[in-house]
Amino acid sequence: MSQAALTVRDLDVRIASADPPFTVVADMSLAVSPGETLCIVGESGCGKSMTALALMRLLPQGVEVARGSVSLGDVELTSLSERQAEDLRGNRIAMIFQEPLTALNPVMTVGAQIAEAISRHRGLSGREAWAAAIEALRQTQMPDPERRAGQYPHELSGGMRQRAVIALALCCDPQVIIADEPTTALDVTVQAQILGLIGQMQARHGTALVLITHDLGVVAETADRVVVMYAGRCVEEASVENLFDAPLHPYTHGLMGAVPRRGADHLTEIGGTVPPLWNLPHGCAFAPRCPRATEKCREERPPLLEYRPDHRVACWNVRHAA
């Protein structure tokens, strides 16, 4: 297996500005290889966006990496200076954000925003950078890219904006792309197009993709590997086949039951709500809602263990789905 493009080990992300400070991501470990797609799944508030931002060194003020390492190839991201991180961002590791309209600067043309990244990292002159920007747009199958490049974000449709955002992320040929819910804000038809596009570009450039989503359908379609997060921790990690074949963690099980399927006569709901991250229950965070919870679960948090090849889970009461 080739060296991982991105490796995360024992990552802890903490909100230091809170009183008292609390952890939003704990013991997160993952690895993505070139050309591979890793999906991070979970409900809102489970810490997946924070993980993404931590990988990009874009954590907001007051939030910090408390522990752990993030390696981009052989570069340790957590120990870089801000200037060094700036050199890597958009260059070797890039991000696609959720809401394309607000993600783009409203007073700059789309082309200018892409050209800025290109000339920043590739050192091209104004005209060269502009041409490269148009080319990047063309690659995202943006119709009439020359004209679109000179337009402002509010003049484009949602799908075109997201293509622009993708072009922005890919324009410098990064090794890793982190996509935070890239299709959530789009129509279903456009969703499929965008996902297909991302896949194509990934195949063409050999980019590693970390795709964050709450939509299991997206996971099924695009993922090679999956990480399931709950309350800031990874509770299950597997190849996509293994996960769908046999979800081991009760939470994953519940998620899948909640997905509408033909033939299913009811949707199962996971009772209860996600506990607040600053007030996590002792022991396993899922225990209050878990149908399999035992006394041990409430006392001691289960570690993430390999249950079978390429399938790890953190649960005391692992069981195959019925």
Partner: peptide, 15 residues
Amino acid sequence: NEDFVRTARAKGVRR
């Protein structure tokens, strides 16, 4: 606090 500022930073633009 707006998103596009985060995008600019994500592009690696200098602070």
